[in-house]
């Protein structure tokens, strides 16, 4: 899964680091570090983080390749499938 965080928009609320700690981590009090190529297994957590971000700073793309790798394809339908996320 590819993702990018608009760090101009990010205000360090750390919701993502709480919901998807394997992908997002706070570095110091306010800086965010994230893995721009998260493992497809993190999908549920990352989707939760995208939805929870108070400033909608996370852009996520779930590629076809990710879909193929995912164990439970039936889970995809409800999740807005392809490019979820905000600006």
């Amino acid at each position: 899964m590819r993702l990018v965080v608009d760090l101009n928009r990010c205000q360090g609320y750390a919701q993502c680091a709480f919901l998807a700690p394997d992908v997002f981590a706070m570095h110091g009090d306010e800086s965010l570090l994230y893995n721009p190529n998260a493992d497809p297994e993190q999908r549920e957590d990352v989707l939760r983080a995208v939805a929870a971000c108070p400033v909608q700073a996370i852009l996520l793309e779930i590629t076809d390749e990710d879909m193929a790798k995912m164990a439970a394809p039936q889970a995809v339908a409800g999740a807005g499938s392809a490019s979820g996320g905000a600006r």
């Binding site: 990018v4 793309e61 490019s83």
Partner: peptide, 15 residues
């Protein structure tokens, strides 16, 4: 820092 790999920063596509 070794937390991400240089060839894994491809930008997500909006469409």
């Amino acid at each position: 820092l070794g937390n991400a790999v240089a060839d894994h920063t491809a930008l997500p596509r909006r469409r």
